[in-house]
Design a protein around this nucleic acid. Sequence first.
DNA 1: ACGCAACCATTGACAATGGCAACTATCGAT
DNA 2: ATCGATAGTTGCCATTGTCAATGGTTGCGT
Lengths: 150, 150
Amino acid sequence: MSVKPEGAREANLDHKLSTLLFEHFQVERRNWSSACHEHGITLPQAHLLRLLRTGRPVKMNGLAEALDCDASNVTGLVDKLETRGFIQRQSAPGDRRVKMIALTKEGQLFRAKLWSQLTQPAPSLTALPLADKQTLLRIVQAMIRSESKS
Amino acid sequence: MSVKPEGAREANLDHKLSTLLFEHFQVERRNWSSACHEHGITLPQAHLLRLLRTGRPVKMNGLAEALDCDASNVTGLVDKLETRGFIQRQSAPGDRRVKMIALTKEGQLFRAKLWSQLTQPAPSLTALPLADKQTLLRIVQAMIRSESKS
DNA sequence: ACGCAACCATTGACAATGGCAACTATCGAT
DNA sequence: ATCGATAGTTGCCATTGTCAATGGTTGCGT
């Protein structure tokens, strides 16, 4: 016992931090979701929209992989966004199997509007002191880096 | 133009940070979800379980409020967890309308097991240097505080 | 004591998400 | 030419989540 008390304290810190994040994300998710609903779409649809950049169509499979979900799920999401007129299925030049998903003019506009709202209304975030924001940015980037490696 | 360039830079920082968090949480959520599924429950059910402490029953309405969702939704979640034997509906002493939800012996055990897994497997988090963890903890706590005030 | 509004939990109906299996069309390699 | 692999779609199912409506219960005002 009492081997490495700092180690134990650090493990405890991990635990507390994970719990807080788990808790906090649940709340944040609701905020994001309701922001999306104000614009007439849903959170998963917004995540799909997030992956699309102007002039850079992505194939269905690429979306499925990026969203880490089944391809059939993407079909449904694309259906809805296409009905709304925000994206369109294009045929790929070399392969008639693949469909490239591209933002429409309307979609670009909508995406920009949605995004400015979606990335701003976290008062809990904007209220942070500048130094904390910079630190947080650095930490989150480190976390994402270590995540994509696994 | 060129009014408060630092202000503009800070707004840009907010934007970048929000985007990263939005992106990162999507990934983290998948990890949590699959961890839950390994234990045979789902993420929303885990969130409900999170709210229950041994010896501290919570009424349905309290759960609905804490989860920020419709009461009818809670009914369904409680149904499933009760079927699994993790929780049970108790009648409240003073009011025959309310039902208190309490952890069973099995539920306590399960919750502990689930929790130790759920709060640990974020390698992107445990890999952070100690100082970053402490800073992150402080920041997240500040964010949660500012959130509950709104 | 009576009536009535408010409250708690549940139910039913509905849309959206997400996973799995089956299917069609297409490609690529042999 | 054939065969296995790949891309996207479809159907089916379980779960989540919201809304409206219901039954039972409470508490208050009169």
